[in-house]
Nucleic acid binder design. Structure first.
Length: 741
DNA sequence: CTGTCGTTTATTTTT
DNA sequence: TAAACGACAG
């Protein structure tokens, strides 16, 4: 049996409180996953059947972790428990009963891009595709409405949405249903509808899920709240775990009041606070506490640790974002030299756009790294194209996929052809693909063009049934001549990379195929498409590779690293300019919570960096350092003395004062190279390697090339290398993994 | 229908 | 900066 003595007092209390509503306020790093898993184990220990337990998370990673750790505790297989994300749970419920609310059970899930495409098409049909229509905004409003309420139209009307938005919403919903698709918001909303309209279904799940646990409760929105309430109202065996200070998804509809009002909502709720932090040193924790203290309306809570002392936080002010990146790189190399691993380090930032400079500098220094988030694998054009073929095979009513690929590769099917088809489909009350299959009522030219597509699809559909999905996908790519198409469109030599991605996709499919049970009614295709929709790259994060992690502050929630860099601690970036401009207290407090999340990711050491001047959206801007830096008590931070002489780019030297850097004049920054500017503070650089023009070199990552230019000397030497594949790059000679050959 | 060219606009995005 | 989108000519 598992050993409760590893738990501290409040943890044990939470684990042993099995009945009735329970709110666990779990500060960052206070062992909430441990509490959740031990509590589940304890339920089972007390005779609760695994299939009576539902544990909901937001990420697949959290779900996987909870499942694995629980299984380790209870030895018995926890296969019958539902430990999954809200969206997976709802998908599963809809696979059983979607027919009861007028959908088919082989529905598809539309992601953001699909939603956008659908809205674009709707606007086009309405003759409103001019650029003055704020498509993005309409999409956001639709999503907001679905997150806030179970009657989105009423919500939109009440919030004085314009007529266009309401009309688009209605059509959007109708089109989704015709395509037999749910968007992410619908997965939740429609389950609530299902449960409300079908008392028998509700009863089934109420009986089944006698014990419900919810992770990251502070991030639940109104619909998730309603789902939980529907399932738990009767028995009230609801345990929620969360931290109001880590609520950072308000802009996605998460309602912090859910956690603040839990005790009111569930009468007799027990509240347990986990305030002992096992992650960070007291220096870091004190800083986090000091920052978050500036927020109002929190559940009172003060994290403490017995890891006294530790290294001070380092604050560094550098001239530009390039120096920021090289400062980070050099510090990482220094740490690694002193025995740290690359994977002990994370670089966090407010916006994905910041990752570019960081990444290119990491490459220059030869530091292994991985960028999480940003453009997701499944959002790449080539992947979405091939996926669209698979989706249309799975569900011929999927108009979004149809529109995506009907002319990819080029089949001379453009707007006018599609207009004729859309009219016909409308008349028939059928989807585009179904309408295209039948040429009656179309002129011969239109019909023959469409046939070039439908014939291809028919062949593919027949082929699909005869072979494993991974093999079929390979065949599909060949069959439609996709590589040739890519080449014909390619201007920047991207074809190879895109084909590599497609090979990765095929590999991905093969993986899933392996796990699909031969006899189960779920086909590999369905399992794969569902996986694509519901899984993100951070879910696949593993500790096996020794790499530096780069990600946004948002994506870092739930993770921890020995050493954390937070880049761009600057007003208008972090806190973001929007939070500033709107002067909205709520927005500012959410930014502060984000900062709190960032700080508390660090176990051992935190670095905060800001720039005097930063290239942003194509122009230079100067922002004073973030207010959050100033909210940290000075005794916790090491602030380097303003340096009089920077090694290079000394034009900035005089402009920095320790407190508020004045705006450096932008025109001085015309030099544009991937140059490492400032001199390393200590003699940590490897023996300076000497390069000269025309040297043949080999780079660990990019292969062989020729040095075409050299600038600087010693540790600041930068070499410009022309690689065999045509790429030209700059490297910091002293650090990059290059050698003469 | 397709390619090119200018214009516009830029958080965060667990799912 | 750069990518994404729409206008417009071929």
């Amino acid at each position: 049996m598992h050993d409760l003595s590893v738990l501290n007092k409040p943890q044990r209390e939470a684990v042993e409180c099995l009945e009735g509503p329970l709110l666990v306020l779990a500060g960052a790093g206070s062992g909430k996953t441990r509490v959740l898993t031990y509590r589940i184990a304890n339920l089972i220990q007390h005779g609760v059947a695994p299939w009576n337990i539902l544990a909901l998370t937001f990420t697949n990673k959290a779900a996987r972790e909870m499942r694995e750790r629980t299984e380790a505790l209870v030895s018995a297989s926890a296969a019958d428990m539902w430990v999954m994300t809200f969206h997976s749970c709802c998908t599963k419920m809809l696979r059983f009963d979607a027919d009861k609310i007028g959908y088919e059970r082989n529905f598809l899930i539309y992601d953001d891009g699909d939603q956008m495409n659908l809205i674009t098409d709707i606007l086009k049909q309405m003759g409103k595709n001019d650029k003055n229509v704020p498509k993005r905004q309409i999409k956001e409003m639709i999503s907001d409405a679905k997150n806030m309420a179970n009657d989105p139209v009423a919500y939109l009307e009440e919030s004085f949405a314009d007529d266009l938005t309401i009309e688009v919403f209605k059509r959007y919903q109708k089109r989704l249903k015709e395509a037999n698709a749910f968007d992410f918001d619908d997965l939740l909303l429609k389950v609530v509808e299902l449960l409300k309209k079908n008392p028998d279904v509700l009863e089934k799940y109420r009986k089944k899920f006698k014990y419900v646990l919810v992770d990251e409760y502070q991030d639940t929105n109104a619909v998730q709240y309603e789902l939980i309430e529907l399932l738990c109202r009767e028995h009230s065996n609801i345990c929620v775990v969360g931290d109001d200070d880590q609520s950072i998804y308000g802009w996605r509809g998460a309602d912090i009041r859910n956690i603040l009002d839990f005790e009111k909502d569930f009468k007799g709720a027990k509240v347990i606070r986990l305030e002992q932090n096992y992650r960070s040193t007291s220096q870091i924790l004190d800083a986090a506490n000091a920052v978050i203290k500036n927020n109002t309306g929190r559940k009172s809570k003060t994290l403490w640790t017995d890891k006294k002392g530790g290294e001070k936080i380092t604050y560094e002010l550098v001239p530009t974002e390039r120096e920021e990146a090289s400062y980070i790189c050099k510090t990482i190399l220094q740490n690694v030299k002193n025995g740290a691993k690359y994977s002990d380090h994370a670089i966090l930032y407010r916006m994905n756009a910041q990752s570019r400079v960081l990444e290119s500098t990491l490459i220059n220094y030869g530091i292994p790294h991985k960028v999480y988030g940003g453009m997701r694998f499944f959002e790449r054009k080539e992947i979405k194209d091939i996926l669209a073929y698979l989706r249309l095979i799975y569900n011929p009513n999927d108009d979004v996929s149809f529109l995506r690929i009907v002319n990819v590769p080029k089949r001379s099917i453009g707007d006018s052809t599609l207009k004729k088809l859309a009219d016909k489909a409308e008349e028939m009350g059928e989807s585009l693909f179904v309408a295209a299959m039948d040429d009656t009522g179309l002129d011969s030219k239109t019909a023959s063009k469409l046939r070039s597509f439908t014939d291809t699809m028919a062949e593919l559909m027949a082929m699909c049934a005869t072979m494993p999905l991974s093999l079929f996908t390979e065949e599909l790519i060949n069959h439609i001549g996709y590589e040739a198409y890519l080449r014909s469109e390619d201007k920047k030599g991207e074809t190879e990379g895109r084909m590599d991605n497609l090979r990765e996709l095929v590999g991905n499919i093969a993986e899933i195929e392996k796990d699909v049970d031969e006899d189960s009614e779920i086909t590999a295709l369905q399992a794969f498409l569902e996986n694509v929709a519901l899984v993100s790259d951070i879910d696949g994060m593993n500790d096996e590779n020794d790499t530096v992690s780069l990600m946004t502050l948002h994506s870092a929630k739930g993770l921890e690293f020995e050493r954390v860099f937070i880049a761009a601690m600057e007003e208008n970036i972090f806190p973001s300019s929007r939070a500033n401009a709107r002067l909205s207290l709520d927005d500012m407090e959410e930014e502060r919570r984000l900062c709190y999340v960032g700080i508390t990711r660090a176990k051992q050491k935190l670095y905060l960096i800001s720039c005097e001047t930063r290239m942003l959206f194509g122009s230079y801007s100067s922002n004073r350092r973030s207010r959050f830096v100033d909210e940290i008590p000075p005794e916790l931070i090491e602030m380097p003395q303003p340096k009089k002489q920077q090694a290079t780019l000394s034009s900035f030297g005089g402009s920095s004062s320790a407190l508020y850097p004045q705006h450096a004049s932008a025109h001085m920054l015309t030099k544009k190279t991937e140059t490492v500017a400032s001199k390393p503070k200590t003699a940590q650089s490897p023996v300076a390697k000497q390069f000269s023009v025309n040297d043949k070199v080999r780079h660990a990552q990019f292969g062989e090339g020729t040095v075409v230019n050299v600038s600087g000397t010693g540790s600041t030497m930068v070499v410009n290398i022309h690689f065999a594949d045509g790429k030209i790059k700059n490297f910091a000679a002293a650090y990059a993994p290059i050698e003469k050959i």
